[in-house]
Write a protein that binds this DNA or RNA. Structure first.
Ligand SMILES: [Mn+2]
Ligand SMILES: [Mn+2]
Ligand SMILES: [Zn+2]
Ligand SMILES: [Zn+2]
Lengths: 124, 124
DNA sequence: GCAATAAATAGTATTGATTCCTATTTAGAT
DNA sequence: ATCTAAATAGGAATCAATACTATTTATTGC
């Protein structure tokens, strides 16, 4: 982190306190209630910086919209096609054998993202 | 398919003939070389229709860009972070135990999408 | 403390993929 | 041949994200 700023602290705190998956707009609105003059560009810039420093993680939600959550180790996501809600899946059944794949291709695999789509209880 | 149109046939043929993963712009440009007056809106509309009728599949590429390919059964994708190229991964090692998960959650899982990110040979 | 300076910000404009709108054309049915 | 719902071309609008820029602010060295 190159420099400290109250805006960055505010944004990080919002994400840590919430603990779930927040859209940029969620974060922007919450931040504005604390710092009315904060700009949307600042939110985007800091989200990027915080992600680069591994303090938060970006999750690609439905319709290409980004969501952010605190870094809490590798896990997967379930996205409800009814209400677009996102929730964590920690089930270790979802495990990809990266090593096995690596032996068979000349590709360097750096990350594997598995996302489950379906219908949540509320939308059933 | 509600109705036939030469535009739709042209678009489908481009995707079937190519066989790889084409961006909307790729498809639009190829289509224009055959039908100079075709509009971008028509390309988007038909891609959506063709996908709804399961003749093609949409792949979500990097940076919110959609790619399309012929329907050729379930498989996964590798996306190179260097050149943004997409390629198929058919390795059966990538297999998620949907049944196992289903037993543990009240969520209805309808689709599991696994995407691998990394660096291709050319970009290494 | 006090400049110097590099980083960060607010506000605004711009981009770029996708969708929407509407008058016109067209494929398929009777 | 006529009718009508579906599809089209062309353009405007949307919307998340980024870029730009003048101004503010945190940090470093005196
Ligand atoms: Mn999560
Ligand atoms: Mn594919
Ligand atoms: Zn739901
Ligand atoms: Zn590459």
């Amino acid at each position: 982190m190159k420099r400290y700023s109250p805006q960055r602290e505010t944004i990080l705190k919002i994400i840590l306190d919430d603990g779930t998956h927040l859209s940029v707009d969620d974060i922007y609105n919450q931040a504005r209630s604390k710092m009315p003059k904060i700009s949307l560009g600042t939110v985007y810039r800091n989200l990027k910086t915080l992600e680069e420093h591994a303090e938060i993680t970006q999750v690609q939600g439905p319709q290409q919209v980004a969501y952010f959550e605190p870094n809490r180790g590798p896990h997967h996501h379930f996205i409800c096609r009814g209400c677009n809600s996102i929730r964590d899946i920690k089930d270790p059944e979802i495990k990809v054998c990266t090593g096995c794949i690596s032996k068979k291709t000349p590709l360097k695999i750096e990350e594997v993202i598995t996302t489950l789509y379906g219908t949540c209880e509320a939308c059933s």
